[in-house]
Each structure stands twice: as C-alpha cells, then as structure tokens.
Design a protein around this nucleic acid. Structure first.
Lengths: 341, 341
DNA sequence: TTGTAGGCGTTATCAG
DNA sequence: CTGATAACGCCTACAA
C-alpha cells in the first residue's frame, strides 16, 4: 500500500503539500496540485484511515446498535441508515441481535473510540442504563427506545396513534368485542400500541376485558398460538388487533385451521405493513410504518448532532404512521392518512 | 479519555509495562500486573483502536458487502455473520443495498485499510471485476456469487440441487406441465435454480417450453404479475415453481384473486423457506436454505483465511438445502432431506 | 506557495 | 522483570 510519503517522493514535493492537496487545506499551485493528483491515482494511494483518525480524532464511522430484530423491519431500518450514512461519506459499524442488556453494553463498550456517533435501538430497557457505558459526550440518537427525560436525541413512531386509529376503525365497522395480541413484554413499542388499543376502547365507551389482551412476542408462532386463547373467550371477540403483522399472519393461519372465516367471523388487523401484508389471504389491514425513513431520519439527526458538537439542545421527533385498510378487517379497500381518522 | 500514559503514570510504571499487561505479551510481576489492572479499570481505560491498528496493521474488523437484499434473507445472513464475528472478537463494517457495480466498487474502495478481510455477496456480476479494486492480498470470501475459477474462497448453497429436487417432487406428484417463475436476470442464484428446474424436467423425459419460464425479479409483486402470463398458457400448467418464496406468495395471491384453487388447480412451490412460508394459505412448500448458517460459515472461512495469511489454498464450500413439503403443492405434509430424493 | 518537524496513542525492539 | 525509544501514517502549526 502506497503511503503519503511515496506520493510525495514520486511527485517531488513534501508530504505536507500532498496532504494539502488531498484535503483541500491550504494553497497549492495548480501545476503542483495536478501533478500530485496524477501520482496519487497512479499509485492508487488511499490515506490510511487509522493514521488519519489518530490525529483528527474522527473516524467517519457511525455505530449502529440493534436488538434481535427479524425480517423486514431489520433490513429496512439498516437500509435507511446505510443510505443516509453513505450520502454523507460515513461508514457503518453494525452490531446487532443483542438479546439482553449485558450483550448490548458489551457491544457499546467495544465501539468506544471506533465511531463518531451512535444510533441505538433498545426497545427493551430504559436507555439511561445503557448510556452509562459510553465515553463522555459521544453523540447518539435513540431509536424507538424507552427513554425518559430528554437528555438524548430520540426518534420514535406513532405507535399509540396508529394503534388507536386502527382500533377505532374496527369499532366504526361495528365491532363491539375487539381483542388484542400483545407484543413482547417490556417492549416499548408493544406497550405504546397496547395503550393505543385501550384508549380507543375507552373513548368509544367500551369496557375492556383483561382476558382480551392476549400475550405474544412479535413472532408468527406466538400469533398462531394466541388464537387458542382467543377462541376460548366467551363471548368470542369479533375482531383482533395484533401488535405487528407477523403475529397477525400467524393468527390468520390458526384461524383458518380452526375454520373461522376472516373477516366474516373474525376481523384481523396488524401493525407495520410489511411488504407481504398485501399478499396474504385475505390481504391484511395494517398500520404502515415508514421503516426505512426511520433509519434515514435517525442518521440525519445523528449527523447533525456530530456537526453541531457539544452545545446543542436535544431533539425529539416522531414519525407518522398511516392506516392501510385491506380485506382482513372487512371493509372495502381504501387508504387514508391518520389525520383523516 | 484516558490513555495508556495516564495509566502508566498513575500506576508508577512505564507505558511498555502497561501494554504488556493489557496484551499479555511479555512477563510482568503479579503485583505490578494487579496494580495496573486496577488503575486501568478505575480510569476506564480503553485502548485507542486507531493507534493500535496503526502499528499492528490489523483492525479486528471485517467488511461486509451486500447487494440490495430484502427481508428475511438480509437479516438472517447478517445475523449469522454478526454472531460469528462477535464470537471471535471482530467488528463488522457493513455496506449494503448496492444496486449496481459502480456502487459496489466504490464501497469496496472505501473499505480499503479499514478491514482485515471481506465477505462479499455479489450475485449479479462476475466477482473478478470487483476484486480488481482491492488492495493486493486482502482475504475475502465470496457468498453466493458468480465466480469462475478458484482464485477466491467461495461459499454457495445447493441452488441447483434444491430446485431440481423440488421439481422432481412435483413431477412425482403427477404434474406433467410445470412452469417456473424465474428470479432476477443475470443473478447467479436465479440461474442455478433455473438450471435445476430444466434438469429435472429433462431427467423425467419431459420437454420444456420456453413460455413456461416466466420472468420475475424475486419480489412479491413480480410473482403476482407473473400469474397473468401463467394463466394465459395453453394448455395451462398444473404446477408452478417460483425461484423464491416472495414470488411464490405473490403468485398465490394472484391465483386466489383469479379463483384458481391451490393446490387443486395449480400447485405452488417456492425457495428459501422464509419463516412466514408455513403461515400463508395454504402453507407453502419450499426449499429450505440455512441462511444464518450461510453468514456464519462465510465468516468462519474468512477468519481462517486471515489467520492463515498469504500462503493458503482457496476453499470452496456448498451448504445443503432441504425440501420442505407443505400443502401448497398438494401432498400430505412431510419433511425430508434432499438426500432422500 | 512550500517544507520541517512535532505529535496523535500504541506496540515492539532493545538494553538494562 | 522493566524502561526508553523508535516506529506506524498522517495532519498541522510554524518557518521559510
């Protein structure tokens, strides 16, 4: 690998001049500049990033810390982060599938000094504990995380609003007994969606029954298994809202096996609007989440924070969700933004 | 951030001794060792990775280059890579969603010097062109990539075998007209699965009709749209094999809308066996691919190559696929490994 | 406009 | 067993 010295020698100048050309810092005569550029490309020179970040104290790398995510959600969020980062010339140091807090903290420590900032998604625990393990004032953005106070930048989606809009829609269709398949325990998204469900029932003057809130953990299988409990309820609910699409699809599978007509005997709705939702049978009504945008926006926020440096007030943003109505809940197909509901 | 000097001063020793303790290199008296350890943790010392890799010429980071992948496949492969890398104390520099060759090459250049090795998945083009852009002898493993010769380590899956086994299964069920939804053009996986399809027809003494090979690009939507062409065929095929599950699910959706009974009037089979396959209606027969394992094994191969250094013969491995038979192709549910067919 | 030289935080090679 | 000290490759005052 050619170093800056090789380029300097070959071009007959000092390393300082080469550095100036490569970084556009300081004045260099056009002719010298041209010559250095020529030599640099000929030698396929690429600055050693370790040496550079040793002196600049910057890495042009962003850290991404993700929990054990599956499927579309994971891939879309990474895609969004990746695109925004690349747009700004940043690399991505990714550490994913952290099951518990110890793992997350270990990963966090391992990233010390290797990144200029962090996007952290930690839906399962209070983010404050996490952040203890970080160097002084590393910029970071919390994604869909349980966080109190406003000590950190945070980006979330309209979990509460989306869930309650969907449940209100079911109620408007005439359903009086609406069950819910809950997401993973101690998960912030799951908790917010549950709150939305409860609020919708309450505001419709309907009482809620704890038995209607069935445990789940965001997997297809948990949705499948939840149907057993659902069908045991007396009187049986006529609609079920799942905290995500994977569970909704699992539940639809079990309902079909139990010969329960969808939406005739049981309306079904999900959350996320993963790409496959429109292709299942019947097509699944869902709450659309702009997943890729979530990643992109988080990255933009992080880069702003990095640029701004220490003195900058923390930001808190929320991304809108959208109701997508298909056949699984019994209405005619239509789409509408949340604000219409 | 505390540096090694701070630790040395505080512990009353030289930086050399601190370094020895931290890296277990060279002898240090137990007492000194203890004291240094104590000071290091008290000061929350973490070695500066830039400085370290500047002198060691190692980064303990692996680069991962991925194309525009979606959904389960992407998340599972990353999960596998991540877990293997973490197990060995390596970080992951990820660059994904590269649409074309120019983007991939740019990403490749950007990683120069930042990684000790690369896992590259580049199903769309001959990997040789890619590798031109790399420093001399950077270790790398090609994942499911189009590669000729054996200049590089490569890991693939049994695309050909899996596809032909599934088509043979359909033929064994009595189907005489089996169509195929093809994957993206110029994609290596797609090409191999198509070869498998053709070989199965041939070995059954069945002629193949180019019209039965319908274009697709691995998305649900392309599967959905392909059904139009499928149903126009005269005589109509009684079975269709899709090059992946996403297309199979899209096709099933369109077939349902066209009131074509599955599997009665049209048997359907896919490839990948994504988690949702068993929950669609009817449950989808598919060729299971050990996606996570693919990532893990690739990473292990890469780490071996890194450890071995220059002089090491290239390896070429193939991961087995498995036939998973569910209701969508009309047989009673059962499972069997490829070798049984 | 250009060059010299110091230093970023480690590791590694010598002496002691 | 321990301590100086020279790299590693680059950036950046400061001089010229």
């Amino acid at each position: 690998m050619a170093t800056i010295k090789d380029v300097a020698r070959e071009a007959g100048v000092s390393v300082a001049t080469v550095s100036r050309v490569l970084n556009d810092s300081g004045p260099v005569s056009p002719e010298t500049r041209r010559r250095i550029r020529e030599v640099a490309t000929r030698l396929r020179f690429a600055p050693n990033s370790a040496a550079r970040s040793l002196i600049t104290a910057r890495t042009t790398t962003l850290g991404v810390l993700l929990p054990d995510l599956y499927g579309e959600f994971f891939s879309e969020v990474i895609r969004g982060i990746d695109q925004a980062a690349r747009r700004h010339g940043y690399h991505l140091l990714v550490s994913s599938s952290h099951a518990d807090r110890a793992e997350t903290e270990a990963a966090l420590r391992a990233m010390r000094g290797r990144v200029d900032g962090l996007v952290i998604m930690s839906p399962d625990l209070d983010a404050r504990a996490l952040v203890q393990n970080l160097p002084d004032r590393l910029p970071l953005v919390l994604l869909n995380s349980a966080v109190q106070g406003d000590a950190y930048d945070a980006l979330t989606i309209e979990n509460y609003e989306g869930a309650s809009a969907m449940v209100r829609h079911l109620i408007a269709l005439g359903h009086r007994r609406v069950a819910m398949l809950k997401g993973a325990a101690r998960n912030q998204d799951a908790a917010d969606r549950l709150r939305g469900y409860r609020a919708a029932l309450r505001s419709a003057g309907m009482e809620r029954d704890p038995a209607w809130e069935i445990a789940g953990n965001f997997t297809e299988e948990s949705g499948y298994r939840a149907v057993e409990a659902l069908l045991r309820l007396e009187p049986r609910p006529t609609a079920v809202f799942a905290a995500n699409d994977a569970m909704a699809i699992g539940a639809m599978s079990a309902l079909r096996e139990a010969a329960v007509a969808i939406p005739g005997e049981m309306a079904v709705a999900g959350f996320d609007d993963i790409p496959i939702a429109r292709y299942v049978s019947p097509p699944l009504s869902s709450v659309r989440v702009p997943i890729g945008e979530l990643g992109e926006r988080a990255t933009e926020m992080l880069l702003e924070a990095i640029r701004a440096g220490k003195d900058r007030t923390t930001r808190r943003e929320t991304l809108a969700t959208t109701l997508v109505i298909r056949q699984s809940c019994g209405s005619a197909p239509q789409q509408g933004s949340l604000t219409e509901h």
